[in-house]
Design a protein around this nucleic acid. Sequence first.
RNA 1: GUGCCCGUAGCUCAAUCGGAUAGAGCACCAGCCUUCUAAGCUGGGGGUUGUGGGUUCGAUCCCCGCCGGGCACGCCA
Length: 548
Amino acid sequence: MSADIKSHLIDLLTQSLAGVAPQSPASAIALERPKQAAHGDWACNIAMQLAKPLKRNPRELAQALIAGLPASPWLDRAELAGPGFINLRLKPAAKLDAVRRVLAAGTGYGRADTGHGRPFLVEFVSANPTGPLHVGHGRQAALGDAISALLEAQGWKVAREFYYNDAGAQIDNLALSVQARAREQRGEAAGFPESGYHGEYIREIAADYLAGNGDPDDLATVRKFAVAALRREQDEDLRAFGVKFDNYYLESSLYADGKVEATVTALTASGKTYEQDGALWLRTTDYGDDKDRVMRKSDGSHTYFVPDVAYHVTKWQRGFAHAVNIQGSDHHGTVARVRAGLQALSAVTGAGIPRDYPDYVLHKMVTVMKGGEEVKLSKRAGSYVTVRDLIDEVGRDAVRFFLVSRKADTEFVFDIDLAKSQTEDNPVYYVQYAHARICSVLAQSGTDPQSLQTAELAPLALERELVLAQRLGEFPEMLAEAARDFTPHTLVFYLRELAAEFHSYYNAERVLVADEGLKLARLALIQAVRQVLQNGLALLGVRAPEKM
RNA sequence: GUGCCCGUAGCUCAAUCGGAUAGAGCACCAGCCUUCUAAGCUGGGGGUUGUGGGUUCGAUCCCCGCCGGGCACGCCA
């Protein structure tokens, strides 16, 4: 018998189809969970899909498929419905089997090995070291870390990487801004740079620099000091957020290693470049870009596009055949450019980089609301709301949970009042509370959770219990989907659903009843629920408290 | 102007790669604590899925037009 129910049912239908219509075109039999309970536990639309090629009436075909189903210990009955749906109903034992699987696998429940340990690079945040992290970075951090965890749970060897653009003009800007503040603090007249950074943090860095006897006139040292200070600050933001990177890749290192120059050379060799107006261009339009791009400006320096390509080449060269970048959608213009650059290089070097390498998750902007009004400023950063502001106001768990709770490509409204007043309504507490409640019951039962693995589950006969068990069974497939599509919000919705079904059950029934057999069965069930809540929250980087 | 993305309940969002009567939460109304944590539960009202066509057994989903919003269109990053 198949390990899980769904593939077991597909086996049954496949066998039936082979008997009913041996000449039928090979088409995948798909099962789906009907929205309505009246439509059974699983539904199949294969009869409607095959009706046309087989030139048969869909209802008649469905009826024949039902009649041809082999006997099964898990399938209760199959029935014809609507225009040709086959609705399948399971026996209770089939649903309860998920409880046993959860308890047997423990923290490993939901994990799969589709990745087979192959490397997967996830690049996210990648903020310039010019200021504290803003809410957009927060969304990236939450998304990137959750996506990384999901991929790890599918058996990929994930590397979380942060790319620092520490070599461009914006760093010069930073250095000049700090220098100007330092001179001010010394009482010297100092013109503040036109496009400088105005945040309070610039003043703090300048003061620290002076306190260490730094010389404001030594711009190179100011720059080094400022970049180091901001990298340290961003690291602290990330630590407060519970996000840890495996690697920090510095744009400046691409120049130091000669990788930028090597990329220009290779691209020139590809024959896809040309000189015009004193600049060197790459014919990215050959690879689907809107217009050709300048690689080397007429003043001899490179555009940011070149180190970008060089950086992505290193991803491939470092053995990451799979890579995904999490970025704000305001950078979507770079997608075509980077891919075009990689294709041009791949063509000349024979690297064989796929056309759609790397993958991208582009997320929309976050607006922060408070008191019914948009919040745009933070005290320290001046011009934007920082991740730290948010964490300080509503707590790390809530921020992480909220920021991954929506599809990446929708604009996000983060309502601080809602997230805060949330002692009652906060969805993260709702899920955590379910976990804490279960822990409390288990503790009071005095039962060793390990012993529940062998508990007899047959006493579980209530509809609410079967619903819960079935929901537990959906966890692995849901995770596989979320990882494949890079959509952690699917997991968030699942956890809310599971928590809701548990709270409802908890409110309606007592777990610690006199009947010993029933009590053990119910303990096994809620322990399984607890385990799945814990596993799911862990993937989101959210705590699963035992007490609240 | 061109390209990409978005448009679903009063608000914030889902919708199983085209499925059956489009679902949650918040807000609103009415109930539930001598019983394992009320940060909880139960019930109720609420929709022409922006709009007009097309494709088919069937469309929130796919195609075309229009309306509205966001972002990007530099020898900036």
